[in-house]
Amino acid sequence: MNMLQGVTIGQYYPLDSQIHKMDARFKIGMIFIYVIALFTASGPFAYSLLALFALAVIALSKIPFKIILKGLKPILWIIGFTLILHTFSTKEGFIVWQWSRFSIYSGGIVRGIMMGFRLILLLSITSLLTLTTTPIDLTDGLEVLLSPFKKLGLPAHELAMMMTIALRFVPTLIEEADKIIKAQTARGADFESGGFIARAKSLIPILVPLFISAFRRADDLAMAMEARCYRGGENRTKMKELKSGKRDYLGLSVMVLVFLLMLTLRITGFDSWQAWL
C-alpha cells in the first residue's frame, strides 16, 4: 500500500481566493467543459492555450505550485509510459532516429509530448476542484446538478450524500489497511515474497479483518446519522446555500470561449499536429 501514501483524493486546501469563493456548481461545470476541451484539442497551439488557462486558474487559486506537483507524482510513470508508447507507435513525419527494427518518427515525438501533456493537465485541473472546494460544497453542487435526473428515478440527494461519505471512507480504509498489514506482519505474515497465487492468498488476512471492521464502521455511521434524525433528502434544508455571482458567470463564459476556440481549431485543422511536422 506504499504507493497510496501520497494519495490526496478529495483533499481540501483552505485559502481565501477567487477560485475558492466560486460557486461549486459552476466549478464542476467548468471542469466538465475543460476536460471535453482537452479531448478536442488538436495540436500544440491548442495544448499551450489550455496549459496557460490551467496556469492562470492555479495562480488565481493561490494554491502553492508545490502541492499541484506533488499530486502529479503518482502518475509520473504513467506519463512516461504514454510518452514512450506514442513515440514508438506513431509512424508519421520524418525519421529522427533508427536502430535495426526500431525507429522514432518526428510525429511520434510530437504526439507523445501532447499525450503526456494531456494527462498532466487533466490531473492538475481536476485536483484543483477538490483543493479549492469543501466536500460539503462539492456535494451540494452535485446534488443540484444531478437533480434534473430525479425524473428518471435517480436519487440525487442520496447519491450526493453517498459521494461525501465515500470520499471520507477513502483515507479511513487506507489507514485501516496499513494498520492491519503492520499487525499481521508483527504476527509473522509475509506479504513481500512468493508468486502470484501466494500473494493473492496473502490478501485474505488483510481484507477479512479490514471489511469486518469497515462494515461495522459503516453501520455505526448509519446509526449515528439516524440518531441525528437524518431521513433523506425530502424537505432537508441547508445551513449554507450555494450562491452564484458575476465571478461565476465570467469564469464559465471564459471556459466556454476556450472550448469554442478548441472546436474551431479542430474543425479548421489549422492547428492539427500533422501540420506542425
Partner: peptide
C-alpha cells in the same frame, strides 16, 4: 433507501476507488 444501505454503498465505492489506484 435505508441509511445503512447508504453508508455501505459508499464504503464499497471507496474500496473500488482505492483498488483502481493500485
Amino acid at each position: 433507501m435505508k441509511t445503512a444501505d447508504l453508508t455501505r454503498i459508499a464504503l464499497m465505492a471507496a474500496f473500488i476507488s482505492i483498488c483502481s489506484l493500485v
